[in-house]
Amino acid sequence: MTCCLNPACHNPPNPDGTMFCSHCGTGLVVLRNRYRPIKSLGGGGFGKTYLAEDIDKLNERCVIRTSNK
């Protein structure tokens, strides 16, 4: 599953291989060609955090944060 990074979207899960969010139509991305966001963990004034898979480390789980800037 890949999570949408659009701040206005409620981040529904999207099946692997999907290129656009099924909820808002935003293109789904793998950050730095390495991190695939899979679930929203929360957010606040500075950004959102996501559970992600590190593709370079055999899909090891990690946490990433996006900025509101």
Rank of each mutant, 00 (worst) to 15 (best):
1 M>T: 01
1 M>F: 03
2 T>A: 00
2 T>Q: 05
3 C>F: 02
3 C>S: 12
3 C>M: 07
3 C>L: 03
4 C>R: 09
4 C>Y: 09
4 C>S: 11
5 L>G: 04
6 N>F: 08
7 P>W: 10
7 P>D: 08
7 P>R: 10
7 P>H: 11
8 A>I: 03
8 A>C: 12
9 C>L: 01
9 C>Q: 03
9 C>V: 01
10 H>L: 12
10 H>C: 10
10 H>G: 12
10 H>Y: 11
12 P>S: 11
13 P>W: 07
15 P>Q: 10
16 D>W: 14
16 D>M: 13
16 D>F: 14
16 D>P: 15
17 G>I: 05
17 G>L: 10
17 G>A: 10
18 T>Q: 13
18 T>Y: 06
19 M>E: 06
19 M>C: 07
19 M>F: 00
20 F>H: 08
21 C>M: 09
21 C>R: 05
21 C>F: 03
21 C>S: 08
21 C>V: 05
22 S>F: 12
22 S>N: 13
22 S>Q: 14
23 H>Y: 13
23 H>N: 14
24 C>W: 15
25 G>C: 11
25 G>V: 06
26 T>W: 00
26 T>G: 05
27 G>R: 12
28 L>G: 09
28 L>R: 09
28 L>K: 12
29 V>P: 11
30 V>W: 01
30 V>P: 00
31 L>F: 07
32 R>Y: 08
32 R>G: 03
33 N>F: 06
33 N>M: 05
33 N>V: 00
34 R>V: 03
35 Y>D: 02
35 Y>W: 13
36 R>P: 06
36 R>H: 05
36 R>V: 01
37 P>K: 01
37 P>F: 06
38 I>C: 07
38 I>R: 02
41 L>A: 13
41 L>G: 13
41 L>W: 13
42 G>Y: 13
43 G>H: 15
43 G>P: 15
43 G>K: 15
43 G>V: 14
44 G>T: 09
44 G>L: 13
45 G>C: 14
45 G>M: 15
45 G>V: 15
46 F>G: 11
46 F>I: 15
47 G>I: 13
47 G>N: 12
48 K>W: 06
49 T>S: 05
50 Y>M: 06
50 Y>R: 02
51 L>I: 06
51 L>G: 07
51 L>R: 11
53 E>T: 04
54 D>A: 04
54 D>G: 01
55 I>V: 10
55 I>F: 04
55 I>P: 00
55 I>K: 01
56 D>W: 06
56 D>Y: 06
56 D>V: 09
56 D>Q: 11
56 D>E: 09
57 K>D: 04
57 K>P: 00
57 K>W: 04
57 K>I: 00
57 K>R: 14
58 L>V: 01
58 L>E: 01
59 N>C: 05
59 N>K: 08
60 E>M: 02
60 E>K: 01
61 R>K: 15
61 R>Q: 12
62 C>W: 03
62 C>R: 01
62 C>D: 00
62 C>V: 03
63 V>H: 08
63 V>K: 06
63 V>G: 08
64 I>M: 05
64 I>A: 02
64 I>N: 02
65 R>K: 15
65 R>E: 12
65 R>Y: 09
65 R>F: 07
66 T>P: 02
68 N>C: 14
68 N>I: 10
68 N>Y: 10
68 N>H: 14
69 K>A: 10
69 K>P: 07
69 K>G: 11
